[in-house]
């Protein structure tokens, strides 16, 4: 019986992240439009877009291989698995020990690996340019993310997110290393989700795009799956930041229905605040040139490394 309950909670988590992801995207778009004094699309527009894409036929390039057709599902699966082990509304999820922070980084790496590969499958120059730039960003973003997680793990004494969240909840104190890690993680999150200033999710101007260039050849249901995975990734990063640095209100293991409901409420409100802050930042800054991005990400890497070094020097940082 207990097992069933645990599995149910895990299932709820998986369902929540998947269904809430497009909503978050719609919310950011709506807020952004308001900030730019536009009316903007309705909140549920991303769901409509997905439904529209699902209804359309797939137009496949003539020399697309089996990898091209299966990769969207691989990307979605890897992102979804990573998102389902990040505690959102409750800690101590039944399968949380399956993958720790390092494994989450690597799962996102798998999703990126497949995405970059299939961008080169049809053999167009746009696919190649997207894949090449994405991997260049990744060579800095991924180590930066690992360094950030090392800092967090050294503070909390664990790489398990449930334990990290509990530690932050009970031993909360301001630490220099955690501040550096938070700043660096925000940079990485912006870069990994193809947000301004690294990439522009709304552009179709060829030379400025990275993520869009990789998915250029996709259409129909395949594109829908990829868009969903991208939305899920944004939610995942916001959940990560919220869970590690602002775990307030998260329901402990076995909290009961009311506790879980409160947890869901707390999570949604924190995610809303985070999304608003992200959009505020995005609207106040211009997109960078591609070769400025490595410097931007290099800052994140250095901050992460500094955080670890401080922890190695003294436990009080």
């Amino acid at each position: 019986m207990d097992l069933m309950l645990e599995l149910a909670i895990q299932g709820v988590q998986m369902a929540i992240v998947l269904t809430a992801a497009p909503l978050l995207l719609g919310f950011t778009r709506a807020v952004r439009a308001r900030l730019l004094s536009r009316q903007g699309p309705p909140l549920l527009q991303p769901y409509r877009d997905l439904a529209r894409l699902l209804r359309k036929e797939v137009v496949l390039a003539e020399n697309a291989s089996w990898l091209f057709r299966s990769a969207p599902y691989m990307v979605l699966a890897a992102t979804w698995v990573a998102a389902s082990v990040v505690p959102t509304f409750a800690t101590g999820l039944y399968f949380s020990w399956t993958a720790d922070l390092i494994a989450i980084t690597a799962l996102l790496g798998s999703a990126r690996f497949f995405m970059a590969l299939v961008a080169m499958d049809v053999g167009t120059s746009f696919g190649g340019i997207g894949a090449s730039r994405e991997m260049m960003f990744a060579t800095l973003a991924e180590p930066a993310m690992l360094m950030i997680f090392f800092t967090v793990a050294l503070v909390a004494g664990s790489t398990e997110l449930s334990y990290v969240a509990n530690f932050m909840l009970t031993h909360a104190s301001l630490r220099v290393s955690l501040g550096l890690a938070l700043f660096a993680l925000i940079i990485v999150a912006l870069a990994e989700n193809a947000r301004i200033p690294v990439d522009n999710p709304a552009t179709h101007l060829e030379l400025t795009m990275v993520h869009e260039a990789m998915v250029l050849e996709y259409s129909g249901r395949h594109l829908a799956v990829i868009e969903l995975a991208a939305a899920l990734k944004l939610l995942l990063y916001i959940s990560l930041i919220v869970c590690i640095f602002f775990p307030w209100g998260i329901a402990p293991h076995g909290a009961g229905p009311i506790g879980y409901a409160l947890g869901v409420f707390a999570y949604l409100s924190k995610a809303t605040v985070a999304a608003v802050l992200m959009v505020l930042f995005e609207t106040s800054i211009a997109k960078m040139r591609v070769f400025r991005v490595p410097e931007f990400l290099g800052v994140a890497l250095m901050l992460g490394l500094l955080g670890i070094l401080l922890r190695f020097m003294s436990r009080s940082f």
């Binding site: 390039a61 003539e62 049809v122 053999g123 250029l216 050849e217």
Partner: peptide, 8 residues
């Protein structure tokens, strides 16, 4: 599903 030349 329809096969067509690459979009690019």
């Amino acid at each position: 599903l329809r096969r067509a030349p690459a979009w690019d």
